[in-house]
Amino acid sequence: MTDLSFSPRPLPRGGFSGGRREPPLRPEYERTVTATGPIGDVARPLSPWERLSNVTALRRLLVLAAVAALWQAAAVWQNNPLMFPTFTDTMAALWDGIRRDGLLSMAWTSLSVLLKGYAVAVVLAVLLTTVAVSTRIGNDLLSTLTSMFNPLPAIALLPIAMLWFGLGEVSLIFVLVHAVLWPLALNTHAGFTSVSETLRMAGRNYGLGNLRYVVTLLIPAAFPAILTGLKVGWAFAWRTLIAAELVFGVSSGKGGLGWFIFQNRNELYIDKVFAGLVTVILIGLLVENVVFRWIEVHTVRKWGMVR
C-alpha cells in the first residue's frame, strides 16, 4: 500500500530517460558596457499632467469640488430651502454671517477655548505617560484610568462641570481636557511601548536619565503614534466643544460657533445653520490639512517613519 521504497528507478523527467539531466555547458563571454549615449536618458522628467496629479492638495480640492457639486444638485432637486439650502445659498449665508453677525470672531471664541483645553490635556498626557513608562504602578494607573474614562462621553460630564465650575470657560475646558486626555495618553503610551528594543538600548547606552530619555528618545521615536493621538484628540475636542456650546449657550458674554448654530436654528435661518456647520468643517479641514500636515511633513515623513 505504502509506496515509499527507495528503489533506484529512473524518474521520467520531461521525456528524458536515463539518469540525471545535466544543464548544457555554454560558452563564457565578457562584454564592455555601452555608454549611456545611444540608450538615451536614464531618467526622464514626468509630463506636466503626471506632475499635476502628484499634487495632493489639488487632488483633495477636486474631491471637495465634487462633494459641493453633489450637494448643490441634491438641494436643487429637493427644492426645499427651509430644510436643505443649496451650496450657493449656504456660501452666501456664510459670507453674510462673516460680514454682519461676526461669525469669525465667534469662531475665534470657540477656537481659543479649544486651544486652552487642548494644551492642558497635552501637558497632562505627557506627564501621565512619562510616569507610566517609568514605573510599573504608573503603567497600571494609566491603563486603568484610560479604560475607565475613555468610553465616558465628555458631554455626559457637562452637567457636573457646570455644577462645579459654573457657566464659564472653566467648565468647557474641563470637558475638553477629558475629551482629549485619554485618547492622547492611550496613543502615546502605545507608541512608547512599540519603540524598538535596540533603540532603547542605544539610548540607555548614552547614559540618558529618566526624563531626558523620555524627551530625547521615546517621544520622537513614538511620534507617529503620538501624532495620531493628537489628531484624534483634536477631532474629539471639536465635537465636544460644539456640542457643549449648543447646550451651554453663551459663556461670559461671548458666544461661540455652537451658539451661532443654536441661535439661528431657533430663528429658522437654516442657511445660516448650514453656514455655521460649514465653518466647523472648514476649520477642521484647515487644521488637518495645513497644521497637522505641516507637522507630519517636517517630522515623521522627513524621518522616513511613515510613507
Partner: peptide, 19 residues
C-alpha cells in the same frame, strides 16, 4: 549599568534614531 564608556554597535539597522 549602561554607560557611554562602553559604546555598543548593534546588529539591527534601527539602532539609529531616525529623526
Amino acid at each position: 549599568r549602561p554607560g557611554p564608556d562602553r559604546m555598543m554597535v548593534f546588529q539591527e539597522f534601527d539602532q539609529l534614531p531616525p529623526w
